Simulated scan of single mutants.
Amino acid sequence: MSSPTSGNQETPQERPPRAPRSPASALFRRLFLFNGLVFATGLTTLALSPATVSSPVLLNELPILAVGLAAMLTANALVLRTSLAPLGALTVLMERVDLVRSSDRIPSSGNGDLVNLLDTFNAMLDRLEAERSSSAAHALAAQEGERQRIARELHDEIGQSLTAVLLTLKRVVDRAPEELRDELCAAQETVRASLDEVRRVARRLRPGPLEDLGLISAMNSLATDFSALSGATVTRLLDSRLPQVSGDTELVIYRIAQECLTNIARHARASRVELSLRAEGGAVVLRITDDGVGGPIREGAGIRGMRERAMLIGADLDIESAPTRGTRVRLTVPIPEPVRQPIPDTAGPVADDP
């Protein structure tokens, strides 16, 4: 015989989880309760104290009312100032925040009812920085791929075509009459100069020394090309014993150095440049300084691209420039600590005594 409670036994419906209280409602409740407590305290004090209020109010009663009102206003102002103080820091951060330059955050500890708001704002900045970093990584990867494609086409198609023209002109010069040789030689030199320029452009687009010989050789080649192009003297302080970094990090360092030297050649009118790449503490530091005209920094596409590249590898880019004192660029790339592998236990299990 079955129990009357067996079979289709009804279970009580689970209550939906209560929605968390919003920061606005929490702050309103706190201020409402505190103001109510202040007014209740003042009313109780007035009711239990020997002080009385006449109608109309006498002159000797005005100081008592003024003191009570001042005490309530002071307490109310203190709680409002304490509760709303983080909003000022939040406003300042919202005005200066830059997802490329830095990762400023507001400490949310000890801010009462606004902790949830500040945590949400910090989480929003983290999410936006992650999304921008991801999109910048895809854009820069596409840019590097396009540069390599253009460099291959310049080398394989235009370079080969110019080489064929150069060889043809050489055969023509050998068989040409004397009165035409000067003009043909001039054309031959023009084609040779164009071929050299195509090769230089291809090297700038695709850093062959970086892929084949490493970062230090690529930096030396970059400094040599810059000195030949601009006529400025380049002092090289390149440490050949740099710690091992990833290929992406080496490419970022090379591209930032390339952009800096390009800007110096175009705008600085410098006669001396110092290119330094060394290990300092737990970081690899790239410094590029010049004695050019300096002046205010206008952050165009070039500097913006440098900051985006630095952001991809977690590096810090600092640019200082003063009129007639040149420009100093410093890139600090942190070196990740190596992960220590646990030492395997090769002793094996210990046998129990018989």
Rank of each mutant, 00 (worst) to 15 (best):
Leu78Gln: 10
Gly292Asn: 09
Glu129Gly: 07
Arg328Ala: 12
Val198Met: 05
Arg15Gly: 03
Arg127Asp: 06
Leu33Asp: 02
Arg105Tyr: 15
Arg307Leu: 00
Phe121Thr: 15
Ile64Met: 15
Gly300Glu: 08
Leu222Met: 10
Phe39Ile: 14
Leu27His: 04
Ser227Met: 03
Leu59Pro: 07
Arg29Cys: 06
Val53Asn: 00
Glu337Lys: 09
Gly7His: 14
Arg200Pro: 00
Asn8Val: 12
Ala66Ile: 11
Gly348Thr: 08
Thr44Ile: 05
Leu331Ala: 13
Arg147Pro: 01
Tyr254Phe: 15
Ser133His: 08
Val38His: 04
Glu211Trp: 02
Ala19Glu: 12
Ala268Val: 02
Ala176His: 06
Ala151Pro: 06
Ser6Lys: 12
Val172Cys: 08
Arg152Val: 01
Arg132Pro: 00
Thr120Gly: 02
Phe226Tyr: 15
Arg152Lys: 11
Leu33Lys: 12
Val57Ser: 03
Ala176Met: 06
Asp291Asn: 14
Glu189Ala: 13
Val100Lys: 00
Phe121Lys: 11
Glu189Cys: 04
Gln188Glu: 08
Ile150Asp: 04
Leu251Ser: 10
Gly295His: 02
Phe226Trp: 09
Gly208Lys: 11
Ser271Asn: 15
Asp225Ile: 06
Thr163Tyr: 05
Arg255Asp: 12
Leu37Ala: 15
Arg241Trp: 00
Leu140Thr: 01
Ala279His: 15
Arg307Tyr: 05
Asn60Leu: 08
Thr190His: 14
Glu299Thr: 06
Glu320Asp: 04
Met94Lys: 13
Leu62Ala: 13
Val350Lys: 12
Ala315Pro: 12
Glu14Cys: 06
Ala40Asp: 06
Gly282Ala: 08
Gly300Asp: 09
Pro16Lys: 01
Gly292Phe: 03
Leu140Ser: 09
Leu59Cys: 01
Ile335Asp: 02
Thr224Ser: 14
Leu215Ser: 09
Met1Gly: 14
Asn60Tyr: 11
Arg192Thr: 07
Asp290Cys: 04
Thr324Pro: 00
Thr289Arg: 12
Asp113Arg: 07
Leu275Met: 10
Leu93Asp: 13
Thr327Lys: 07
Val165Phe: 09
Arg149Glu: 02
Val293Gly: 00
Asn116Gln: 12
Gly88Leu: 14
Val67Arg: 01
Glu146Val: 02
Leu73His: 09
